[in-house]
Design a protein around this nucleic acid. Sequence first.
DNA 1: ATATAATCCAAGTAATTACTCGGAAAACTC
DNA 2: GAGTTTTCCGAGTAATTACTTGGATTATAT
Lengths: 208, 208
Amino acid sequence: MPDLKPKKRPKQARSRASFDAIVDAAARLLRERDYEALTTNRIAEQAGVGIATLYEFFPNKEAVVAELVARLMTRVETNMEQAFSEASGMEPWPAVAHMTRRAVGSLVDERDVFRVLLRQVPFVPMLPAVVETRAALAALSQRVRIHAAGALDLPMPEEDAWLISEMLYNAILEVAFLDVSERKRAELTKELARLTYRMAVGRDPEAG
Amino acid sequence: MPDLKPKKRPKQARSRASFDAIVDAAARLLRERDYEALTTNRIAEQAGVGIATLYEFFPNKEAVVAELVARLMTRVETNMEQAFSEASGMEPWPAVAHMTRRAVGSLVDERDVFRVLLRQVPFVPMLPAVVETRAALAALSQRVRIHAAGALDLPMPEEDAWLISEMLYNAILEVAFLDVSERKRAELTKELARLTYRMAVGRDPEAG
DNA sequence: ATATAATCCAAGTAATTACTCGGAAAACTC
DNA sequence: GAGTTTTCCGAGTAATTACTTGGATTATAT
């Protein structure tokens, strides 16, 4: 694995602009092409800086991608933490619906970038920012299961929570990546929350 | 998209061996390295044939990968069809458990290859063989839902079936990819089947 | 046996890649 | 304003890539 940290943080306003332009350019390129087409020379060109300027701040191509992922994920994390605290006062079913909605919502704007990063770039799913966000989803499903224990509890609490969070995570991605109207996406998101609740609790949220 | 069909099928035994050696070599390389490291020259070298021999049968690198995917997926499809017919006489819950077990089982042997192909190679998830197998999973979840209608039916049958199959598909992959004992994998697989049943039917398979 | 078709291949090519070099220009420090 | 640090960059490089060429070798057909 190559070094994924920027080799130098910009210290002046001018270079901070270059640094940001490089990261933004990488995102812009991923919006329109595959990861395969993402080259350092193209990033620099798109960013309007010389290729040597890119290597002034990043040790290699992967570090640029890692920085982009970090930026995207902090937005997602902020969103999720906020949603989590909002949901803390809710009943289990509205809480799950709310969290699911926010999770999908925090991905849709940049869905093309997320799709390439999370589904094509080998090292991205292993990045701390991504791993931590997935862990938060596992915590959520644990919490729902405890708060609203079903008629029959699940026999393997940890494993089931892990499975539920894996399924939820992947389905959130799929729903966010879909190219449908926002109305349709909202419907699918609600159904996804319902299915998650069914898994965790063992009965439908609208059942007696 | 490049042409994914082999440019020429081998007609003699000698060339059939070369053809197979090329596909096998690609699989062998993917077992140990990323897709990025899969090059035509390396494939030919691993296969013990000249690079020009590879291009005698395949128009490009992607066609080799597509042929490998086709071979891997026919084995999965055969497995699934057999499992499907076996499950046709069963009650819904044993049927789901059986199908899930077979799905995971048909991936584990080549999990390293499947992981790279399905999670890193952009065009593989769109290949007909893969799309068709996923469609079969959607049909399964539909069937379970109808056969064992829950206390409260799902409000959006098609969308819910799609969501369930997406979640099941991804979870099957995750469970198959895990590096755990076969005993642990069997436990996880059963729990996955249970969660799927909960989603589709709205109650636990062991509940009254 | 001869002609035809299938199979093989090592060396080579053109393009692309990630990344470096050597130094100029601009911005801070005192 | 002299000196120091930061920022910038385009030309260049070494390595790697997918793929071609031109022909040799082997099998099949008649």
